[in-house]
Amino acid sequence: MTLLLLCYEFFFTGLFAVGGGLATIPFLQNMGKKHSAWFTGAGLADMIAASQCAPGPLGTNMATFVGYTVGGFSGSFLSVLALMTPTVVIDLVIAALLERFRNADWVEKLMRAIRPASAGLIAAAAFSLLRISLFRESAFSFAGLAHLRDLLLWFDWRCVALYAALLPFAFWKRLKKLHPLVFIAAGAAVGVLFQL
């Protein structure tokens, strides 16, 4: 039953995640919220990290890990296939009429709205990752907010410092081409050294 549900969720993701691997992250987060026994937000963040360390498309890598976590080997296999199926089917239809599709006016209009929406979705996913990584989830509540200075307790300041230290390097043009693994290894090293 879980496997069927997993297939459905990934098929759905493949059908609606426009713009590649990163665009599947908001759908994966939604999946974790819907099926809380499958994985937590922090668990998903770890899976995203692992997927960035491995070669190959980020989207199918994440699907492999999520599928494995939920349903073992068959889960991973089915998740990846379910994610790819709508894509390949749509591609087959388009390939048969590529010229007409590419120059169609309505496609252009559709994309002018879908592209920014998809970007907004990815930004929301990134925001939620930031919340998982930089906030103390236990302290994150408006109820406990008696003083404005309690706001400071929301953040895990050592993580915020690490984020602030890594960000300029990630944006720096000359280092941008660096392998993501370098950043992830740096994060792991700091994590172990300072026992974050």
């Binding site: 990752l129 960000l167 740096a186 994060g187 090293a189 300072f194 974050l196």
Partner: peptide, 16 residues
Amino acid sequence: SAFVGVRVAVCALITV
């Protein structure tokens, strides 16, 4: 502990 740091690194990458 390593994964706490790794998550932060992933955040930096994804922010870009």
